[in-house]
Structures are given as structure tokens and as C-alpha cells.
Amino acid sequence: MTLIDLANYDVVYRRPEALTNVQTHYCPGCTHGLIHRLIGEVIDELGIRENTICVAPVGCAVFAYNYFNVDGCEAPHGRAPAMATGIKRVMPDRVVFTYQGDGDLAAIGTNEIIHAAGRGEDLTVIFVNNANYGMTGGQMAPTTLVGQVTTSSPYGRDVELVGMPMRVAELISTIPGASYVVRRSVHNVANINKTKAAIKTAFQVQMAGLGLSMVEVLSSCPTNWHMTPDSALQWIEDAMIPVYPLGDYRVADAVEPLTKRRQPAHQQNGVTGG
């Protein structure tokens, strides 16, 4: 048996300083934890951990403040952009981000996100779209796909009854105060890398004082979709992306220099809006 001398090895992977050393409560196979890690890496790379405040939502990510090693608080359901506005306005030199699910942001909190964007608040919004209310056990969300079975649409989402899925990135991209609005996914490595790059740009947009930045991330929910983790990732690609095309929905001119590579909406992955 030989002893391994760690001095001979490079560390290629470690927990970002911006993440705490605790086990998360997320279900096996859920990609929330992965998205947390991307945010943690970005906070480390930008050197803003001691300057950042996290606003957690109500929903699966309600305990997000436990996982980010930054000052954190927990907003009422849907109100994170308003609470973050209060924090940012009184401390304009701090970095403030919200982490919100689709029930939180796209249903009960539509007013707050639209007006935070309208005012051009210097906030970063990480919007996690998993096409259902995960925390309460898989009810229909505004983002639930047509025909998708949930506990509150047990016969599948019926367009006659509740209309079509709501496309949030497209909606927010029409608001001038939102200067960086993109949709990404974390269903495979290539897209995970693109998501991380977008999150980094989003934080840089805030640090440059260019207005609201939002990254919508398509995320898996194997538990409530009743799928294996693998098939859930496949379902993102097969079912979600056709309805929620990946791409850049708004990159304001002032933001352009911050992005390495533009991804025009509707062109990535060769899909068009369904």
C-alpha cells in the first residue's frame, strides 16, 4: 500500500466557497442542486460572496438560503423581486439575486417580476422552470405543458379550461428595463455549461448597473413527473424545449460586450416555438 501525497495532485473539483457544506433537501435526480452549484461557482469566480444577498422564494427552493454561503432571506410567495428591490435600493453596491420557481414567479408573483423589470431594477433573477408546483406535490403551474398530467390537472392540462402554457422569458423580454433575458437548460453537459455562462453574464449585468437580468432554467422534477432522473432529463429535451425554446430573448446593446456568444432565440437546438 502506498500513501498518496496530495501535493502531487491538482484540485480540479471542490465545493465553491459560496455554497455551504450541508446536504440539500432536494429530491434525487432534481436539478435544483446543480443550478445552485452553478450559481455558487459564478459567485466565487466573480469574487462577490461577501457582497451578495440571496432572496429565497416559496416553493422547492424555500431553503435556498441554507445552501448559499451568503447573507440570505426568505420572501413571501412570489414577492422576492419586491423584497430584493427593497434590499438593492438601500444598498446599491451589493449584489442581490432572487431564486424563484415557476409557481412563485410565473403565477402568484407575476406582478412583482414584471414591475421589477419595468423599473429596470439592478437585480439578478434565476427562474427555475420545471413545469409544475414541486414543493406542494406536483400541481399544475402556468408553465405546465398542454396535456401534462399533474395532481390538479389529473386529466392533463386542458387548454379550453386553463389556456396555454405561459412563456416567461418571452414575456419579460418585451420590457425595456430587463436588459438580459435568456432561457437555458441543464439536461446535458453542453447546456449546463451554457447555463453557467448565462448566470455569470446575468450577475455581471447587475454589477455593471445595466438593469434586470433573468436566466430561465429548464429543470427536471423526476418525483412529480413520475420519471427516472434520466428520463426526466430526456423529457426536458423532448417535451419542454419545443414549447420553451432555448436562447437569448433580450440582450440590450449595453449588455452585448458582456456576452461571449449570442444565442438567438428559436435557433438553438433547431427548434421553433410550439
Partner: peptide, 10 residues
């Protein structure tokens, strides 16, 4: 609703 949550944040 938003006003009170801005107060909460501040």
C-alpha cells in the same frame, strides 16, 4: 403588496 415587501427587504 409590493410596497410592504420592499419595506421587508429594506
Amino acid at each position: 403588496l409590493a410596497a410592504v415587501n420592499m419595506v421587508y427587504g429594506a
